[in-house]
Simulated scan of single mutants.
Amino acid sequence: MRDSMSNDKRRSLITYNHITYFLYVISYFTAGLLWIVPIVMNYAKRHDASGSWLATHFDWQIKTFWYSIVWFVIGIILITFALGGFGVSVLADSGNIAIGSILLAGLGLLIMTFTFIWHLYRIIRGWIALTDGRPVP
């Protein structure tokens, strides 16, 4: 990848990326309230990094955000359906529906847990690569 940007601009974008990675990590301690801030920041400066190794970090964070949202929502939907099925099983006095609902809720929780770990892994891996001055795959 050809990199023809000035050193000042490169340093500025590196600092900017450090801030966005930091905000992603901090968002875990704010119940996700800060999660939207770094994605907006990434979209705002993404074009400034095009053609450089820093562009991979913007893309990495954007993809991490959207894939995490999609999988987390899938987990929430599964848990919601499971809780509805569990309510029906109580009203219908059906043990089979209750077991299926518990398994479905477990699957939803497993997906959400995996998504949480995957998201954290991607943020840490990207931040380490940025610190080392390397692009991310």
Rank of each mutant, 00 (worst) to 15 (best):
G100H: 05
H119L: 12
Y67F: 13
T80V: 13
W53E: 05
F81I: 12
T20H: 00
H57W: 12
M112R: 08
S27P: 09
F22C: 03
L109G: 14
G100K: 14
I79P: 01
F58D: 01
G106V: 03
P38N: 10
W66P: 10
N17Q: 06
K9L: 14
V70D: 11
W71L: 09
F81P: 03
T80A: 14
S4K: 06
A92L: 11
I123H: 01
L54W: 04
G106T: 10
W66E: 09
L54P: 07
Y21R: 03
I62E: 05
F29D: 07
W71F: 11
S68H: 11
Y121F: 15
V25G: 10
R122Q: 15
G32L: 09
L104F: 13
I128N: 11
S52L: 06
Y121T: 11
A129I: 10
I36T: 02
R10S: 03
K63Y: 06
S12W: 08
M112Y: 02
V90R: 05
W35I: 02
T64K: 05
F22Y: 02
L91A: 11
G133C: 04
R46H: 08
W60A: 01
T80M: 11
K45E: 04
D132K: 15
V70G: 11
K63F: 03
I117W: 15
K9P: 02
H57M: 10
S4Y: 08
I124Q: 08
S68R: 10
Y21Q: 01
V136I: 03
T20P: 00
Y121A: 12
F58E: 02
S4T: 07
R134S: 06
A49L: 11
G87I: 02
K63G: 07
V37M: 09
P137A: 03
A98E: 04
Y16M: 05
V73I: 15
P135M: 00
M112K: 09
I77G: 11
L83G: 00
V37D: 06
W60V: 07
S94F: 04
Y67Q: 08
V73G: 07
S52N: 07
L104K: 08
I26T: 08
I79Q: 13
M5V: 13
L23V: 01
V37K: 05
I74L: 12
W118P: 00
Y121M: 09
F72C: 05
T56S: 14
R46N: 06
F114A: 15
I39L: 03
S12V: 00
G108K: 14
I14S: 12
N17I: 04
W71C: 03
G84A: 14
V37C: 09
Q61V: 01
